[in-house]
Design a protein around this nucleic acid. Structure first.
Lengths: 223, 223
DNA sequence: GAGCCGCTGGCAGGTTGCTGCCACCGGTCC
DNA sequence: GGACCGGTGGCAGCAACCTGCCAGCGGCTC
């Protein structure tokens, strides 16, 4: 299926659903994918991200992916963990100290998608193909990228944002409780408890529980 | 076998061997055993302590044991671990800030054994049964005991004295290495490595490795 | 209701960590 | 030499921990 496209005509898509339908193909079949956003709530479409990540596995070589976020993307535990997992999966993630006003996506440096404000609950996405416009956006993007700091480096010195529950778990771990006792104390299953612990280890960049203990204390998450 | 004893005659024993032969029976068949010493090198007789501890298990109820040491008894890792294990076995252990000049042993508040200085490499032990003398020594002992501080409390805020090797192991643990990798790195067997780790956990009063990580960092044994 | 989604918890099969037991080795003392 | 002692390392059995898989459940949308 080949579409002829007027390069100078911007296309406006309304809502994430339409975006995925019309431009989703672009994302999975590209060599370079770059995006910028303030936080992770932007792509709220359920399951969409997972599908994209899953597709990365099937493509060889996987597209180079660059993700630029403001610090707000690490505001809560879940978002932060998600970023860490992205980085672990091979995506490049950087944090830009300045807030990022508009969400931006760049595909192969040829197509730009700019997100507008929500109009009546539905956000608008403008797909730009005009070479000169895209070129400008691209150069801006990379300039910002350069000044931003690598996720790992950004996270190195600051404690992860942990939920109340996670802090509670840290307390139990610090108390020397075995998993079974701790799970019982929290009224959850052993399986779930261990899921939580594994998530915390991920957030602490720890390979072993010993290391996690150090990190947790380092960050003042214990006493 | 019943011996008649002149209560006012002190008996002088030369060397630990003689002490054990003549007075060893007292230690195992008593209700209360109290001793004071500067460090753990006093009873250097190989295997003797182990035998005493083993006997405690067989006696019901085990004799109440009180051990009073100067801080020098925690000067090295091995001594400190030994004290911790004694305490864990149910013996009362306290640390007296003042140095303890003479080693003293009290059995059932009826017999006192006072160690003298080494004469030509062999130490002399004076066994005292004279009631008034024993009484005086006993009251002195308990006065000192009262002013001394419980081992656990004393250890609470100060890091254990770790050998170079133990600190090295802490480093590897902190690096997130699995036991096998760490053991290989140190050129020792898996079994021995785990022995070392277990010993360190004991010194850190940790039930789990996570807790040990916290403690180690707390004591500044990591960075 | 049907379908989808995220979360949960059981299960199974794995790895890692823990420890008692014992044989072995080098050193020391008689 | 022989006996003993402390330290080591292999082994075995167990406890603890880790994870992929999947069924089930409540919530949500259509």
């Amino acid at each position: 299926m080949v579409m002829s496209v007027d390069l100078d005509r911007n296309v406006v898509l309304r809502g994430e659903v339409e975006l995925v339908e019309r431009a989703g193909r672009l994302f999975s079949a590209c060599e370079e994918f770059a995006c910028a956003a303030t936080d992770l709530k932007t792509w709220a479409l359920p399951g969409f991200r997972d599908r994209l990540v899953a597709e990365r596995h099937r493509i060889d070589p996987p597209p180079a992916a660059f993700k630029l976020y403001s610090p707000a993307a690490l505001a809560d535990e879940e978002s932060e963990r998600h970023l860490v997992e992205l980085a672990r999966a091979g995506l490049r993630v950087r944090i830009c100290p300045a807030p990022i006003p508009h969400e931006t996506i760049l595909v192969d440096r040829r197509v730009a998608i700019l997100a507008g404000p929500a109009a009546g609950g539905v956000r608008e996405y403008t797909v730009v193909r005009s070479p000169s416009v895209v070129k400008g956006v691209v150069s801006l993007y990379w300039a910002t990228w350069e000044t931003a700091v690598e996720l790992a480096e950004y996270r190195r010195d600051r404690p992860p944002a942990l939920s109340r529950e996670s802090r509670r778990i840290l307390g139990l771990l610090g108390g020397g409780l075995k998993d079974e006792a701790a799970a019982r104390r929290l009224g959850m299953s052993l399986r779930t408890y261990r899921r939580r612990v594994a998530e915390i280890l991920t957030l602490l960049d720890a390979d072993t529980r010993f290391q996690a203990g150090i990190r947790a204390h380092e960050f003042g998450l214990i006493g």
